[in-house]
């Protein structure tokens, strides 16, 4: 259970306020127009920025004093998920030990997880020798070897074509269910949310106060802004 209680943040003349709860095991799509604060929400939870007020708690314990790597969170960025001078294997291994001192069990885990995301034949390659989809699969394997209960996706698949993108999301969704991982994903595409998410949050001009079930994501939603956003996005 993730709890944002009255979290306030200010950046470049914009105020953000988040007050919401995410249940363990859910897959939450974070929706909203550009600049609304979707990534800010993830950055606060990941610990890259600190709130000015309020508290963020995971399973009842505040995480504000913890450094990003000490939080029970793994994260997949839009780009730069891989160190381009290190091989796929080394990139995954860094999720297990920050100095790549790996024991036999961990090496086995890398092997298993890379089979899961079908990059086990590509482990010797440098990121430049991989396609965009393969690169993000390697990064995904690293997220899952970390065995953290929460996974944040900051539009990691937005550069992929629509078919591949949905396939990747389904894979993430399946892996997350299997390991009981809570996923928060920022997305531009309503269709992505409808395809895999169990819940959604709509960020409206820096504010978000409710996590709703995905079934409620319709054009007749009582929130005017959300309804407009839905029509515009669906018409695109």
């Amino acid at each position: 259970m993730i709890n944002f209680s009255q979290v306030k943040y200010h950046y470049q003349q914009q105020n953000f306020e988040f007050d919401l709860q995410v249940e363990q095991g859910s897959l939450v799509a974070i929706l909203g127009p550009s600049g609304a604060g979707k990534s800010t929400l993830l950055n606060l939870l990941a610990g890259f920025i600190a709130p000015m007020q309020g508290d963020i708690a995971i399973n009842g314990n505040s995480v504000l004093s913890a450094a990003p790597h000490q939080r029970p969170i793994s994260i997949l960025f839009q780009d730069n998920n891989l160190f381009t001078h290190l091989t796929a294997y080394q990139n995954i291994g860094l999720g297990l030990h920050p100095g790549l001192k790996l024991d036999a069990q961990q090496k086995q885990l890398i092997q298993t997880m890379s089979e899961h995301v079908e990059v086990d034949k590509l482990l010797d390659r440098l990121p430049d020798q991989l396609s965009g989809g393969q690169q993000q699969r390697v990064a995904l394997a690293r997220c899952f070897v970390q065995k953290k209960p929460i996974l944040l996706l900051d539009e990691p698949f937005s550069a992929l074509d629509p078919v591949l993108r949905v396939a990747m999301l389904e894979r993430v969704s399946a892996l997350a269910k299997q390991q009981n991982v809570t996923v928060l994903m920022v997305t531009h595409h309503i269709s992505d949310a409808l395809a895999v998410a169990s819940h959604f949050v709509f960020i409206d001009q820096g504010n978000a106060s409710a996590v709703e079930r995905i079934e409620q994501l319709t054009r007749s939603h009582p929130n005017q802004h959300l309804a407009q956003f839905m029509s515009a996005e669906v018409n695109k």
Binding site: F48, A67, H69, Q70, F77, N80, N81, P98, G99
Partner: peptide
């Protein structure tokens, strides 16, 4: 490129 990745992995 790597500041956020390093902090999130604790490198």
């Amino acid at each position: 490129k790597y500041e956020r990745l390093c902090t999130s992995l604790g490198i």
